[in-house]
Amino acid sequence: MRIAEVISNKPPTPEQQRIKTMQSQVRQAQQRVKQERIRQQQMKLNQQRSKLNSV
Rank of each mutant, 00 (worst) to 15 (best):
S24F: 14
T21D: 11
R18N: 04
Q40C: 07
I7K: 12
Q48Y: 01
L45R: 09
N9W: 09
R49S: 05
E15V: 10
P11R: 02
M43A: 12
P12H: 02
E15F: 03
K10I: 04
Q23F: 10
S50Q: 08
Q42P: 03
R2Q: 13
R39V: 10
M22G: 07
R18G: 10
R18M: 02
Q31W: 03
Q31R: 15
R2I: 13
V55S: 03
I19C: 14
R49G: 01
T13G: 05
K34D: 10
M43Y: 05
V55Q: 07
M1F: 14
Q28M: 09
Q41I: 02
A4V: 14
Q28E: 15
I19S: 11
I3Q: 13
T13V: 02
P14I: 05
Q42V: 14
Q25S: 07
A29W: 10
R27F: 07
I38T: 07
E36N: 09
I3K: 04
Q41Y: 01
V55D: 07
I7T: 15
L52A: 04
R18W: 04
R37D: 03
R39M: 06
R2H: 09
E5H: 15
I38A: 14
R37E: 11
K34N: 05
Q28W: 10
E36L: 05
E5W: 06
I38C: 11
A29M: 14
Q48A: 11
Q35C: 01
Q28A: 11
L45I: 08
K34F: 13
E36H: 02
Q35Y: 01
L45Y: 03
A29V: 15
E5C: 15
V55Y: 04
I7L: 15
V6L: 02
Q25F: 09
